[in-house]
Design a protein around this nucleic acid. Structure first.
Lengths: 207, 207
DNA sequence: CCGCATACTGTTCATATGTACAGTACACGC
DNA sequence: GCGTGTACTGTACATATGAACAGTATGCGG
């Protein structure tokens, strides 16, 4: 990959300045007008070159969607909103309106997960999963409908409440293990509903 | 001038939220889609009402040019790319080109952290921090230059290598505690460089 | 009851905008 | 010389987008 040319650097600077002053991206024609290009394709070429070199991000066909590649902002293509369910009875199935749902935004690529509509999050309450190094206040990202493998952390609906268990198999039969000595170790998996399999975890700083 | 209605407040919040997440304004059709309006005019009406009430600024006929009226300044970056440093000698100071840097994208709001250029990540190697429930393969998000509080996990440069320690104070003097029995418990903090304070953690699914 | 604002549905229209295609000129490496 | 990338001009096109027009329904104050 070649280096960024002087002209392209100027275009990138203009885009950066424009975003600073206007709080949004310039259009291709505005770029052309600023540099005195009589053809808008000149601006389009520069923008394409910058995109190919990774200096610019954009959303295809979206108006005014140029983002400097090194900026902290990124277009929404990698963004995913995950609903957060607390220790709520009925857990996965939400009775509340979508507007009331708390969401966290994550980048599926960074988390190494797929972006599906069946992905959700649980805010962990208590230290019941400390045996798996999952702490109170952690956000566990789960995928609904995924086939669990032995050792996976899963969310199960028990007594109308979402709880985290470890999935195991013994003599070919699946069972769930609670990582909490207070509860019985073995729960036949057939008796309960597995809501999702843990695919990632997010922990915030305390205090 | 009438007051802003509840519905209009919702629309305004969505616009503000969209700008923070995407770094740009939503289109009228995107607003309509978000609220489930079957007609885009509904969104246009709300936007016009907000403009008349001074809660929104915009550029006439310009695509994606809605700005919350209270501040034209650049909104907080919603999604930021954080460079990942492994167990690399020299750690925080990178000798490598920026293109070679691995990055993870996170939403500062979701993680409960500030978006600064001094934020970085370390990919944890080994189980030396298992006492703090930080596992091999976890990504620890740290902020450089932050004042650590007792109990905080910090990254320190020891023997030219970035290692994680717990920050403590004893008799008013700061020291670092290794959460690993193999290493000495007490390291005078004055002797080493604290690169950053842990503000969040991200764990991917194994395998 | 009337007037008025809010909160929509449904449609149409002008244009702003990104993108593609065709072509010219120049510099540079092999 | 030849191929490649940069740096443009000029035209054309599909569509995303803001804006306008014609309605319907609801609530609220006078």
């Amino acid at each position: 990959m070649k280096a960024i040319t002087e002209r392209q650097k100027r275009v990138l600077e203009f885009i950066r300045d424009y975003r600073e002053r206007h709080g949004g991206s310039p259009s291709l024609r505005e770029i052309a007008a600023h540099f005195g290009f009589r053809s808008m394709t000149a601006a389009a070429d520069h923008v394409r070159a910058l995109r190919n070199k990774g200096a610019l991000q954009w959303v295809p066909r979206r108006a005014r969607s140029l983002y400097p590649g090194d900026s902290m902002e990124t277009p929404d293509k990698a963004l995913m909103e995950i609903p957060v369910y607390g220790g709520i009875p009925a857990g996965f199935t939400d009775e509340r309106r979508q507007e009331e749902l708390e969401c966290i935004a994550v980048d599926p690529n960074s988390l190494g997960i797929r972006a599906t509509s069946r992905t959700f999050a649980l805010e962990v309450r208590g230290d019941s999963m400390i045996g798996r190094h999952i702490l109170d206040g952690d956000y566990v990202i789960l995928e609904h409908g995924m086939m669990p493998r032995p050792g996976d952390v899963v969310a199960a609906l028990i007594d109308n409440e979402s709880t985290l268990k470890t999935y195991h198999e013994r003599r070919g039969r699946p069972y769930l293990k609670a990582e909490n000595p207070e509860y019985p170790d073995f729960i036949p998996a057939s008796e309960l509903v597995i809501q999702g399999v843990m695919v990632a975890l997010i922990r915030r700083r305390k205090g």
